[in-house]
Write a protein that binds this DNA or RNA. Structure first.
Length: 322
DNA sequence: AAGTAGGAGGGTA
DNA sequence: TACCCTCCTACTT
């Protein structure tokens, strides 16, 4: 493995950073356009993210995929064409987190941007841990946990069936494998998986070095306390799972989103996607929307979820909104 | 075709 | 026993 240096990035001449708009549709469009699903390295100029005690050496391989809304290293655009200042490029349905981030990032130094990016990594790992019910530290994973993580990563990066190539491995097995080992299991996507695992490992190692109090002051997020208080966690209920997804619009607004958060009304935008996520969470590979919706309907009697007054397809309402 | 509604039986913690 | 999961039929959009 070679260290992913600036030769991939074209960043030696201090190319200016500018912020791409965080529209999730743009992210989808970008994804759809990219035939090679490995994130293009040229999209992100950060090779080593600086944060007290944090080193995410392979983040460049994945960050553009996970955080395309954050930044894009590019040639300087005409000053009048800065996307973040161009109203028509501002999406109407930007998630709050991303919108806030965009505003914050606009005038930030590179270091501040990096800190925010690291914060987003923590959030994403936190979310995955909650939804998969796994430890943030890969060394703790059983074979089942590894399969969950693989399925999740497969889903996240649109990797076709990679989980089948890594059967019966514990997290410790996975961590002892080299990048070459990963490539041997999957010549096409081994390096992507290795990079993603590396982020998890680095983050877990960072967490060990930095007590939560230290990290909390740097990241305005509940990441570690949430992760730790959640693991090992209780069996999750479907309604809790849906709420978790809804509370992470940055990650999941493409498949489920609030229509009216105050009233608890939400819409499942991609029924198959949500069902698959639920199936991964519950270790039910055969889960589909038919079954998931049946489970939702069981909540009608219990007064947890109902159809809104004006019934619409794929739209439900929490009886007791947050 | 896909989604909605609800009955029924079964598995598991 | 609670909480789904699975399968099913009938109906609606």
């Amino acid at each position: 493995m070679g260290s992913p240096g600036c030769e991939h990035m074209g960043c030696g001449a201090h190319s200016p950073l500018y912020i791409t708009h965080p529209h999730t549709d743009a992210r989808k469009a970008w994804r759809d356009e990219v035939e090679d699903i490995k994130p293009p390295r040229s999209l992100l100029g950060l090779t080593e993210l600086s944060w007290p005690g944090v080193y995410l050496p392979r983040y460049d391989k994945l960050a553009a995929e996970e955080h395309p809304w954050v930044l894009r290293m590019t040639e300087a655009p005409p000053s009048s064409a800065l996307p973040s200042r161009t109203p028509e490029l501002s999406p109407p349905a930007t998630s709050q987190a991303s919108g806030d981030m965009e505003g914050q990032v606009e005038e930030c130094s590179l270091e501040q941007v990096q800190t925010m990016v690291v914060g987003e990594v923590l959030k994403d790992i936190d979310t995955a841990c909650k939804l998969l019910n796994i430890s943030p530290d890969p060394l703790d994973w059983s074979c089942v946990h590894v399969q969950k993580w693989l399925l999740w990563t497969e889903h996240l990066y649109r990797l076709p069936q990679v989980s089948t190539m890594f059967q019966e491995l514990t997290g410790r097995d996975l961590c002892s494998m080299t990048e070459a080992d990963f490539r041997q299991h999957s010549s096409q996507f081994g390096d992507t998986l290795y990079a993603h695992l590396d982020i998890w490992r680095s983050t877990a190692a960072m967490k060990e070095r930095c007590p939560p109090e230290d990290t909390k002051s740097t990241v305005d997020d509940d990441s570690w306390s949430d992760v730790m208080s959640n693991y090992p966690s209780q069996p999750i209920h479907l309604w809790q799972f849906l709420r978790e997804l809804l509370l992470k619009p940055h990650n999941y607004s493409r498949c489920i989103r609030w229509l009216n958060k105050e009233k608890g009304i939400f819409k499942i935008e991609d029924s198959a996607h949500v069902a698959r996520l639920w199936g991964i969470r519950k270790n039910r590979p055969a889960m589909n929307y038919d079954k998931l919706s049946r489970s939702i309907r069981q909540y009608y009697k219990k007064g947890i979820i109902r159809k809104p007054d004006v019934s619409r397809r794929l739209v439900y309402q929490f009886v007791n909104p947050v």
